[in-house]
């Protein structure tokens, strides 16, 4: 039975699309048939992060409106055998995404895939609600920063109240917290909320911590999901996230500051 996972956050710019691309790639690397769907209608970007922007012919909205078959809209990833991307449309029509349409697409995808990863738009409008509606599990992407934490709390409340599982009175959506752009040095200096702080504030189990890194920009520049950036802490951290999601035990890494020398410590820097 396919599992549907929404990558959400409330706030924009915290790393939802980066995480969707890396996480979906990671599941595919583990051999699972995976599809990643862009729900950000009007602001399509997952295709760029996945590096398949020039191969988009049909999109989610075309499928919903019956202008294309699902098979025509799915783009096979060039790096992972089992991975497909379902891009969204650039239309400015906000009502293009219908509940019935999305449900029909999900039902069809469920037959073909093990994991369906939904990349949610920012905000709590219809696109975001549509992305989380069918979710079995949710990864709430949060930066250790006040506005992001507050918005994550909001989205956790919405997950508990507005998902299909909540509406049908089924077992609630399983929630995971993913802390991104984490800077252990700044945490140590008391300038950034620690992972313990955020966990305590949001009362949600931690799936992983992705360190702040310049590799993310290098990856998006080239259209390579960050999990493929060899020998980087970001790629390793995302691999750990996928492993934990699949039920494996992995200790948290990259949460301690890199040790600096005695003189640098003495004089600051």
């Amino acid at each position: 039975m396919a599992k549907i996972i929404v990558i959400t956050s409330g706030k924009g710019g915290v790393g939802k699309t980066t995480t969707s691309a890396a996480f979906a790639s990671g599941l595919a690397l583990r051999g699972y048939r995976t599809v990643v769907i862009d729900f950000d209608v009007g602001l399509r970007n997952l295709d760029l992060i996945m590096g398949c922007e020039r191969r988009v012919v049909y999109d989610l909205i075309n499928v919903i409106q019956g202008e294309a078959k699902l098979q025509q809209a799915l783009i096979k990833d060039k790096r992972c055998e089992n991975l497909y991307v379902l891009p969204t449309s650039q239309t400015r029509d906000k009502d293009a995404l219908t509940t019935e349409g999305v449900t029909a697409v999900m039902d069809e995808l469920r037959k073909e895939f093990d994991y369906i990863v939904c990349d949610s738009p920012a905000g709590i409008e219809s696109g975001a609600l549509m992305a989380l509606y069918h979710a079995d599990e949710a990864i709430v992407v949060t930066n250790p920063e006040v506005s992001s934490v507050r918005d994550s709390d909001r989205i956790l409340g919405i997950l508990a109240a507005r998902s299909r599982r909540a509406e049908l009175g089924e077992e609630p959506v399983k929630e995971h917290l993913l802390l991104t752009r984490y800077s252990p040095k700044r945490v140590e200096d008391g300038e950034m909320l620690s992972l313990g702080d955020v966990k305590e504030l949001l009362r949600t189990p931690l799936l992983g911590v992705i360190p702040e890194s310049e590799v993310i920009l290098q990856a998006s520049n080239q259209g390579i999901p960050a999990i493929h950036m060899e020998n980087s802490d970001v790629a390793e951290a995302y691999k750990d996230v996928v492993a934990r999601f699949l039920g494996e035990e992995r200790p948290l890494r990259f949460i301690q500051p890199v040790k600096v020398g005695f003189f640098k410590r003495l004089f600051g820097g």
């Binding site: 006040v146 507050r150 945490v187 200096d189 008391g190 950034m192 620690s194 410590r265 003495l266």
Partner: peptide, 22 residues
């Protein structure tokens, strides 16, 4: 925080302020 900061003393850490406000 550097060694010198330790002696000069420092104001309340901003992360604490953030946590309390949240």
């Amino acid at each position: 925080m550097s060694f010198l900061d330790y002696f000069l003393g420092s104001r309340k850490k901003s992360a604490h302020v953030a946590k309390d406000r949240l």
